[in-house]
Amino acid sequence: MSAVELRARPSTRFFRSELWLIFGRRRNWVGMAVLAAVPVLLIIAVKVSPPGGGGGPDFVNQITQNGVFAALAALTLELPLFLPVAVASISADSIAGEANLGTLRYLLAVPVDRVRLLVVKFAAIAVFALAATLLVAGVGALLGLAVFGGGPLVTLSGTTLPFWAGVGRLVLVCGYLTVCLTAMGAIGMFVSTLTEQPIGATIATLVLTVGSEILDAIPQLAVIHRYLPTHYWLAYTDLLRDPVSYDQVVPGLWSATAYILIFGAAAWARFAGRDVTS
């Protein structure tokens, strides 16, 4: 077991330690508990006073028919703010958090290649985006099924899908939202390379996200809408139509890919040439 042999074999140790940093921190547990609380509160609210046709979002009305809809309703409620807050805080913490604690220079002294550091950090952000989405959907679906029972899934088009096909649609929705949130995480990681203050980076990332959502709601700015990072987020509802519409989902995936590439490259441009002093 010489050192040379160790170098030659790509090790997952750094990635595993990164995941441990994210999922082992108590503050992140609290954050995830908040994410999981929304479907719980929603299901309690619907159980106590069932929505009487019309009014709330379309998904909420369906919860009493099929518990799986609790997952979709919870995702819809958390998508504008809670999920972005979670991903923004994790991604903004990726570089700036290490710099703030003074551990970044030790990490680079290990030595870890800077490109590899960025790739591992980004991969961990993507895993967290998936975990956060699945947590909300999973808690919603399981608790919803336990309280209201399962059944065929009613698509937005009014047709019914068998139970497992409905679960498949939910998995597709989670996958799409994960890609969208990961693109936001790439922006957060770039902001994180600019500063040593993780809280500042979190706020900046959130301002960008919420700002994008606000701009997207102004009809006079329709020209720039398709370039906004959050523009295609709501396209996940197209996955619940019958037949599935890809008119918005496919551009949404391209948009997310473009944001990941551009901000990943920007993070590299900033971080690889930066003097790390802390």
Partner: peptide
């Protein structure tokens, strides 16, 4: 298949 419509359970 796209023209088949049966009202879903629970619908008015």
């Amino acid at each position: 298949g796209v023209f088949a419509f049966n009202p879903p359970p629970g619908a008015k």
